[in-house]
Amino acid sequence: MKRFGIGGAALLLALALGYAMLELGPARLDLRPAVAAHLADSGVRHPVTAVLLNYRGYDTLLEVAVLLLALFAILAVTPPGPARRPAPADPLLQMLARLAVPLMLVASFYLLWAGAFRPGGAFQAGAVLAAALVLLHLTGQLPGWPTPGALLRGGLAAGLLVFLGVAAALLIEGSLLQYPPAWAGRLILLIEFCLTGSLGLILAGLFLFLCQAEGERR
């Protein structure tokens, strides 16, 4: 009964959405000209990055907070335990991983740098960084993380804190995150740099902090 009800409702919603989309006329507003018009002052050349870190940089600030928050929540529900190192993988795999990691670091750095003028940016770079760490873990060369020490905590929170610090410091300009055009590029790069590191650690942490709970089951 419940299945049919929910299934029917879902089908109905899909049909209604499809129908409404097909009959929809053009959008009333177009933000593209505005995005393009201010691109020169935004400090970056890629429009998506400009939206992400300048026009709607506040969204991104909160989004970093959401990610860090998920990490806090995971740490909070996981009881502290000893770090666990997975069984070492095949030596060949280990070597391949060791080879891959420097390449991934380079790729990450490239993505970070490229974000200013083509698709890329801190999130993509951070994701590659995190992948490198997870890869090392899965091949048995990096233990799971225990309750984070002061250094790791600093690394995890640095991105948000730097972003926050810059946003607050720019209040001098008249509002939150109001980059002066001359400094916008450099400040965004600073933020992105710190974000990349922290996001890499956070994303890796979402995986590696969980590995400690493995030991105590039931």
């Binding site: 933000l31 593209r32 995005v35 429009p47 998506v48 400009a50 939206v51 992400l52 026009y55 709607r56 969204d59 991104t60 989004e63 999130f123």
Partner: peptide
């Protein structure tokens, strides 16, 4: 392409 929703989707 509209960069605004693309950035939103990234978020």
């Amino acid at each position: 392409p509209d960069p605004v929703p693309q950035a939103m989707v990234l978020t």
